[in-house]
């Protein structure tokens, strides 16, 4: 088992590095300039989009993993699902934070504000808060079984609340005037269909997915080791 894992890791690391370097090169030298609806050349700050979008998708994936492994933990009470849930939640919080950070930087450059109460941004913020709360639950319960079970419950309700948050926030914003019109994302008419953009996005997505998988794997291993140490210690106590 551990031999297999180290093999995966051996491949994963160089792949991760390669794709990251590739991504950076592509973003700066390969991807074309973007134009908005009116045919205006978009600011170079648009390049952050190639990082922002994949990170956002990866953070959704990680919370999906938390959700699914929480359900599996409750139905099987098998420890490994709990380990997967906590690992995915921690990495997910990191990515969710990066989504907010890159989004803010982009927003500042593009519109002059760091923050806009816009549905997608607000939902990302809520998502981030929900999983911060998830980690708080884990931390504040000492017994490992109980902490696993109760945080699994929170992992499930937290995940389900997110689409409802999105709906409610959209409802809320629709009563206010749209602040930036159609060029909000700058991508509407900018030609997302352009192959070079698609390729850059795919590479970027692959790079961040690999990064995510890598961190998740290491984090998961730490949880496994913690458990092993705990078991060994209680075995020692027994004898």
């Amino acid at each position: 088992m551990s031999y297999m894992k180290s093999n995966i890791q051996r491949i994963l690391l160089p792949l991760m590095l390669l794709s990251m370097i590739g991504l950076i090169a592509m973003v700066f030298y390969y991807s074309p300039s973007m134009y908005d609806d009116a045919g205006q050349l978009l600011d170079k700050s648009f390049n952050i989009f190639f990082i922002h979008l994949p990170i956002a998708i990866v953070s959704y994936i990680s919370f999906m993993i938390v959700f699914i492994s929480s359900i599996l933990y409750l139905s099987t009470s098998c420890k490994k699902w709990d380990h997967l849930a906590v690992s995915a939640a921690e990495v997910g919080v990191l990515f969710a934070f990066l989504v907010l950070a890159t989004g803010s930087i982009w927003a500042r450059a593009a519109w002059g504000w760091y923050w806009v109460w816009e549905p997608r941004l607000t939902t990302s913020l809520v998502l981030f808060l929900v999983y911060i709360a998830y980690l708080t639950v884990r931390q504040s319960i000492d017994e490992s079984d109980k902490s696993a079970r109760l945080s699994a419950i929170f992992g499930i309700v937290g995940f389900i609340s997110v689409p409802l948050s999105f709906l409610s926030i959209r409802l809320w914003r629709s009563v206010h005037p749209v602040m930036f019109g159609d060029t909000f994302y700058g991508t509407a008419g900018g030609g997302l269909e352009g192959t070079s953009i698609i390729i850059t996005l795919l590479i970027s997505f692959a790079a961040f997915l690999l990064l995510f998988a890598g961190i998740l794997l290491y984090r998961y291993e730490i949880e496994q080791m913690k458990d092993e140490i705990y078991d060994l210690k209680s075995d020692l106590e027994m004898t």
Binding site: V126, L129, V130, A133, L171, W172
Partner: peptide, 12 residues
């Protein structure tokens, strides 16, 4: 724990 989850209640 409560406030992030009840955003969909508070807003509407």
């Amino acid at each position: 724990l409560l406030f992030p989850l009840i955003i969909p209640v508070i807003i509407p």
